[in-house]
Design a binder for these strands. Structure first.
Lengths: 144, 144
DNA sequence: ATTAAACTTAAAGCTAACTTTAATATAAGA
DNA sequence: TCTTATATTAAAGTTAGCTTTAAGTTTAAT
């Protein structure tokens, strides 16, 4: 009566599922971020639960968490519910840094767009050829 | 009748102004991103125009432009108006990549926040202890 | 005039996050 | 059964973007 036959992925298939390479998966394992299962012959295999974790891990990574921080997170998780506060504190710290960086990025995006507008204005002549980009930004109130 | 006495910054002061280190400024110079002036004794100095350029460069950098791409941009700029199309194309390419990455970051930010909410719900008991994070995301319609 | 801080160069070193290599073993399909 | 794909390990190599070092020179303040 097996209520749920778990799908098993070998490293190559799991690499496709996650968008990572096999060497990267082995690297993450070596760094302690994943713990795949093994067949009786010693081959790695991964399950759908591992997929969930990898996806979450990749989101954390793109918010700026380093491998080392992720490792810390994994270790705390393995210790159980007594470390929830630490995990929350870590994630809140990551979020706070990320938000700062995110604001910077928005600013940079604005400046990049301004520059493209400036080029276009220059090319079809509705911005004075003599108006510097710095002056243009000042006029838009986008300078720092 | 000197209509405008330009302020001159030595590398250490310019480092403070830009938030970069002196070695980084020398490195950027070696890579062809800046061309400071020199005193008669060979010391570098920078002007307010250089500040504008560095600020813009740092914005481009944070949108994902590499040193190499910045160097290309600088070279084209030095060639004059005939390369405006190339520069615009480069910046548009950078913008497009940036926008994709930005969407990802927004998604990651959402997931990070969901995780923190999940932890909080778990701790003060209004999320079933048995509800996995994956299930929680599904309930919020935030899964991939 | 002296001294300390700041500058000069070229080259080597560092860090994060992989990627590649080499030599070998296991597994899956015809 | 044979062949080919995929797996195994440990270790070395790569890349971007700086940072540090070493040995000497210039500047600024006392």
């Amino acid at each position: 009566m097996d209520t749920k036959t778990e799908k098993k992925y070998r490293i190559g298939d799991f690499a496709e599922v996650t968008g990572l390479s096999s060497p990267t998966l082995r690297y993450y394992e070596k760094e302690g971020l994943i713990k795949p299962h093994r067949t009786e012959n010693g081959l790695r295999y991964y399950t759908d639960q591992d997929t969930d974790w990898i996806k979450f891990l990749l989101h954390l990574k793109s918010t700026g968490m380093t491998i080392e921080q992720l490792k810390q997170y994994v270790d705390w998780r393995a210790e159980g519910d007594s470390t929830i506060d630490k995990r929350v504190a870590l994630l809140e710290d990551v979020r706070s840094n990320f938000e700062k960086e995110f604001d910077n990025l928005q600013k940079s995006w604005t400046i990049l767009n301004d520059k493209l507008d400036w080029y276009k204005g220059k090319v079809n002549g509705h911005i004075e050829d003599s108006e510097s980009f710095a002056a243009y930004l000042k006029r838009l109130n986008h300078e720092e």
